[in-house]
Write a protein that binds this DNA or RNA. Sequence first.
DNA 1: ACGGTAGTGCGTATGCCCTACGCAGTAACC
DNA 2: GGTTACTGCGTAGGGCATACGCACTACCGT
Lengths: 259, 259
Amino acid sequence: MAAGKGEGAGGDAGTGLSAGLETAWGLRERPSKGPRPGLSLDRIVDTGIRIAAAEGIDAVSMGRVAKELGVSTMSLYRYVSAKDDLYVLMQDAAAGAPPPRPASAAGWRAGLEWWAREQRAVFRRNLWLLRIPISSPPASPGSLEWMERGLEVLDGSGLDDGRKISVMMLVGGYVRNEVSLMADLDAAMRAQGVAPDEVMRRYARTVDALTSADPGRFPGVRRLLGAGVLDVPDADDAEFEFGLGRVLDGVAVLVEGRG
Amino acid sequence: MAAGKGEGAGGDAGTGLSAGLETAWGLRERPSKGPRPGLSLDRIVDTGIRIAAAEGIDAVSMGRVAKELGVSTMSLYRYVSAKDDLYVLMQDAAAGAPPPRPASAAGWRAGLEWWAREQRAVFRRNLWLLRIPISSPPASPGSLEWMERGLEVLDGSGLDDGRKISVMMLVGGYVRNEVSLMADLDAAMRAQGVAPDEVMRRYARTVDALTSADPGRFPGVRRLLGAGVLDVPDADDAEFEFGLGRVLDGVAVLVEGRG
DNA sequence: ACGGTAGTGCGTATGCCCTACGCAGTAACC
DNA sequence: GGTTACTGCGTAGGGCATACGCACTACCGT
């Protein structure tokens, strides 16, 4: 773990950021002294993302990335101060900046829906994102743009800034959590090498075996088993939209002041 | 990673569970043949929990647990099939079974509030719990009891079973996510060795340094900085209760059928 | 033109980590 | 008393991140 020192080799401005992140913010120009670098941050980060997308975040090791690039492991440390740094850079590159808000997403509710769905899309395109341990609050260009966009969307809600942040954390957290479950299922699938619904079916069978010995202890769970509710893998979008609808209903109560 | 085989050395029933979990369910009696074990699952799991509580989940390695117990690393594998197995066992032992529901928590809303707060309390007592990668759906006795209790609480809501599960995932996810942020803050604190509010203050300073160069790009964020909203570390309970209230408001809309 | 120097790639080495395998010892059963 | 199932654990193999230092390169100032 550990965000490490975080400042490393003398940050330019007093940002307290790692070398890699300052580069991402464009705060570092290449010093025109030594030999021209044979590698670039972008190539490293892209390679990391490619590996993560194909084989999961655990497959991304410094050695592996280096091998993929045909360089030695230690070369990477000229560009990245530590593995965590690479992770943050990958995260930012993959998440990128939010797309422009379409005209259809007017008003706070439609706006939040757009914001949530767009974030979900990013996560779903890069399930490994959620497996990266968060080591510090969002300080990358992309993250801040997302935050900015969220604030913008809530402008018409009449909520004060503190409330806006709270609502954004609520909605953002919901999205994150929903996709997280999906990522976990994905990981289980990879590990066992079976299809998603097969994972759920096995799970239902396991729970059945465990609770059948003492049914009185788990009446509700056994009812679920009988109805086959546990077999189905959430039907994806429907489940997400259901939860999002509930959350936004709750926000609506707040906005409309009928709390 | 990887839930691995999961069945290992011939599961008793067709549960498909690891050896350790079957022991937790009481499905395995000690075979009365060889020398008496000098160790016990409980001692191993307790030691793991103690280390995790004191130094975070990353400090829990097989070697470390063994050293703490004064045995060799490999001895542990007689009791636990893999490190992931130990993690699951630790999770179950720490979460335990839900306490009995008090009379004050009558009705679905008060019931869900109780359920959510109780789960949060468990997570807060064991912040490392959230750092454990979930490798499979909940199949431990404790997890199923929590699920059972959630179903029970929603009995008076008039929702069907599918909806109940959805609502439970929504609320449970909310709790999980909220405490997760706290755990991340805790980890950052540990890593940098500073107090929580100092972490936030540094963060605010970083964001300020980054966005001050081009203020027009981040008007909302800069407004937050000016108001000092980013300095404060969420005021704990208030933030949690706010989000929970919103979520339950949303559920209420569903239950009362004014969707 | 030419040394100084900062920046480069990378080999080596340290110290962790998980866990497969197999051996020697032990205690109950037949 | 032998069989057998089970115990603890030593050894070893294959990862991993990264500190350190060496050889080399290309620009800068003179």
